[in-house]
């Protein structure tokens, strides 16, 4: 009855100890590099706890004044998603190897996408702020670029995996390149497009708050001003409010995305 198990292979101790030791050394090296010390952290915990005490309870009286700025944050995110979402379509199509119009166009578009993705949203906010001044418009423009970076890369990969039979059939009836894209390619990848656009919207709501910190308007700006005035009970209120709002948006978005899948 008792099955004979083959002998359990010995553990590779040199590898385990070597890898563990390497990670430990890397951590110590990095910690000293940035001047991080555990003892200082423990000594400063007192001021941390004072901060926490001052932050509680949340200032619920502040709530009505949050609705307007939060709506502005959502507006920035919506404009960013719509403008960026539309711009992503041609950029993604030209970056898909099976659909692009030529090697040079493909190469240029790929690299353009890579540059967009390399630069962070904050950089774009600063750039547009210099161009159009600090405020919600700069934020919306920055998020448009950010949305293009998110959607175009993901969607161009979806487009590369479509069945090329249908685009060929559109070609065979005498359809042009644009008609092939419109009727042969996009219908096959429309669901993933909507799904990525919703995902980009979720990211944009969060990103637009970060952009508010640097003056791009919305609730991030209120958060920054209250923090600068040491109104920690209000800061807590803002964080709670944003937490609930983001959770609701994410639930809504993932509900739709599941329906589409």
């Amino acid at each position: 009855m008792s099955a004979v198990l083959p002998k359990k292979p010995a553990k590779n101790w040199p590898l385990i100890l070597g890898a563990g030791g390497f990670l430990l050394l890397m951590t110590i090296w990095s910690g000293t590099g940035i001047g991080f010390s555990l003892s200082e952290l423990v000594c400063n915990i007192a001021s941390g706890s004072r901060l926490l005490q001052e932050s509680w309870p949340p200032d619920f009286g502040f709530l009505p004044r949050l609705v307007g700025p939060f709506m502005e944050t959502v507006n920035i995110a919506i404009i960013g998603t719509v403008v960026g979402g539309m711009l992503s379509i041609p950029i993604a199509v030209l970056a898909a190897r099976n659909l692009t119009t030529g090697k040079i166009v493909w190469f240029a578009d790929r690299n353009f996408m890579n540059i967009l993705r390399t630069l962070p949203d904050l950089f774009w906010a600063m750039l547009f702020a210099t161009a159009v001044g600090f405020g919600p418009v700069a934020g919306a423009l920055a998020l448009s670029v950010f949305t293009v970076a998110v959607i175009s890369k993901l969607w161009s990969e979806s487009l590369e995996s479509i069945d090329m039979g249908l685009p060929e059939a559109v070609r065979a009836v005498g359809g042009s390149w644009l008609e092939m894209i419109r009727y042969g390619a996009i219908p096959q990848a429309l669901q993933t497009y909507v799904s990525y656009a919703l995902y980009a919207f979720e990211l944009n709501v969060r990103a637009s708050m970060v952009l508010g910190l640097v003056g791009a308007g919305g609730i991030g700006m209120i958060l920054e001003s209250q923090r600068a005035n040491f109104e920690y009970e209000r800061v807590t209120m803002i964080i709670l409010f944003v937490l609930v709002a983001v959770l609701i948006i994410e639930q809504f978005s993932s509900y739709i995305r599941n329906k589409l899948a």
């Binding site: 039979g165 249908l166 059939a169 070609r171 065979a172 359809g175 429309l190």
Partner: peptide, 21 residues
Amino acid sequence: LRELRKHVGMIFQDFRLVKRL
């Protein structure tokens, strides 16, 4: 070529329809 294809119909083994339309 598009002008020629305009008058040449093609039927495929795998139909090649836009399924969601």
